[in-house]
Computed example of a mutant assay.
Amino acid sequence: MNKKILAAVAAAMAALSLAGTAQAANLVVNGSFEDPSFTLSAGSYCYLNGPYECGAVTGWTGAFPLMSSSSGPWGNPNTPAGDFLVGIQGTSHIEQSLTLAAGTYTLSWIDAGRGNYGGPTETYQVSVGGNVLSTEAVNYGAAWTAKSLTFTTAGNTVLSFAGQTNYDATAFIDNVSVTAAVPEPGTYAMLVAGLGLLGVVARRKRAR
């Protein structure tokens, strides 16, 4: 394999490596709800566009309660993702417009169940671009659980978590992330094999 081929292999591998690093970035703004426009004391809560209304939360719109991370109101557990979390209660919802290129993405988040209300489960739907990707049911007192799914989009779209249960159950949501799909290891192998084949062809040409 000549120097040009080796340089092409190195450049291609470097490009893929950099792409994988860039794609790991979270494309959701304020995914752990740590940037409200108001002060919320420990163990307290307020509503965005609802009763006990407070200010805004950077990146997000909708009607939902924001809570501090403590064993305070509604038995919300301490979240591993910062000082704040949101509740999906009844038919409340949160959403964010995402700036995405066309492609495949991974959505991940964590949820937990209300701990001081011994009623039924809270059900909520996860949607992207108006398409329901998943319907989740969170049991009373459920511990924090990691969730993830994959979706494909043609471009910019809206991410939404919307309650489906018309009673006083609550699903807590935190640590929301959207990342572009990273190439599988097989992609790298195929690239190296293809460039290796180019090297073989180049050597044969030199031999002739």
Results as ranks from 00 to 15, higher is better:
44 S>N: 15
48 L>H: 01
25 A>L: 09
74 W>T: 04
43 G>V: 05
47 Y>V: 08
37 S>P: 04
62 G>V: 01
58 T>Y: 08
31 G>D: 08
59 G>Q: 12
71 S>Q: 12
26 N>D: 14
33 F>G: 01
38 F>A: 12
26 N>F: 08
90 G>F: 06
83 D>R: 08
41 S>Q: 10
83 D>F: 03
84 F>R: 11
28 V>K: 12
59 G>D: 08
39 T>K: 14
66 L>W: 02
75 G>W: 03
66 L>M: 05
39 T>N: 14
23 Q>Y: 12
42 A>V: 13
77 P>K: 15
42 A>F: 10
58 T>Q: 10
57 V>A: 01
51 P>A: 04
66 L>E: 00
75 G>P: 11
36 P>Q: 05
81 A>M: 03
68 S>I: 02
46 C>R: 14
79 T>D: 09
25 A>S: 13
61 T>C: 00
68 S>C: 07
73 P>M: 06
64 F>R: 04
52 Y>C: 06
44 S>K: 14
65 P>G: 02
83 D>M: 04
35 D>T: 15
36 P>M: 06
65 P>R: 01
55 G>H: 08
62 G>S: 01
22 A>F: 13
34 E>T: 06
69 S>M: 09
53 E>F: 03
28 V>W: 12
27 L>N: 05
66 L>H: 04
55 G>S: 10
48 L>K: 07
27 L>K: 08
55 G>R: 10
56 A>C: 04
52 Y>M: 11
89 Q>M: 09
80 P>T: 06
